[in-house]
Amino acid sequence: MTKVVLQVKNLSKTFKNFTAVDGISFAVKEGEIVGLLGPNGAGKTTTIQMLLGLMTPTKGEIQYFGKSLVTHREVILKRINHTSGYSRLPWRLSVWENLDVYGHLYEVKNHHQKIRELAEAFEITDLLPRRVLDLSAGQTTRALLVKAFLNDPEVLLLDEPTASLDPDIADKIRDYIITERKKRSLSIFMTSHNMQEVEELCDRVIFLSHGQVLAVDTPDGLARRNKESEVQLMVKDGLKRLIQMASERKWNFNEKNRFITLTIPEEEIASFLNAISRQNIKYADIQIVRPSLEDFFLSVVEGKNE
């Protein structure tokens, strides 16, 4: 049976009259990548801060490797690491100096060697002598990722790991994460606004809304909760008949220069295709776009899926 490396039970955080996180529970297994999604203010950052021991929960319990974070803080923090949007590195220090300091703080053996290896993997070897002050946002993100991997963590908490990175570098970093997971059963708990990234990396997604867990599922499972697909087609003849059909069946549609996009419940797509054939509507470039994780995200933000 796969071990649970992170267990959260009934976690809550209340600030005066505002409840940021409201009794959430979940677990992350060894080697699993779990995404934490939700609109702004859903409680993601508060949750991650509590998972790092940077904020005391109002209620609930956090356990890593079967041990409480409150009573085994030092032992646990040695075995995990993180990057987050609300932290930076001391800007006057060079990248090397920063990583040297964190090598000591995490008590990494042969940390100079480890820094060199990771710097190569994240393509920042040439940046090591440069001050953090002189780095671009993307370069700083990579330096923070090197810090995050410095102690060979067993659990990694990543807050927007590839934000501000060029697509090619972001791709390499995703590959590195996948390789590390395969190589040593690394578990990752991550937030991201890049839905494609979440679909590509995550085994499961926890969707937060107003501090509560709204859904836990695979990225595909969440996407499928949205029952409507988009059908896009270029109508050569019969546009008026098609618009009338959409209006009668109360489907949403958008039309411009004979290109029409219809939002149709998935189970009605087959009958729609039959109907346009029967009504002799001539079309080209038909495309059926299945619901994605992003559609689920947007439907929650718009209040349709809550």
């Binding site: 801060q49 790092l52 021991g53 940077l54 803080r73 030092e74 032992v75 923090l77 040695k78 690491n81 993180h82 987050s84 609300y86 932290s87 930076r88 590195l89 001391p90 800007w91 006057r92 964190y102 703080l105 995490y106 008590e107 810090k147």
Partner: peptide, 18 residues
């Protein structure tokens, strides 16, 4: 203050340092 100015406090306190 240096930790607060450089927004490094979260990184520092998320290490095992006591």
């Amino acid at each position: 203050l240096e930790e607060l100015w450089s927004e490094n406090i979260a990184n520092l306190l998320a290490t095992p340092i006591r």
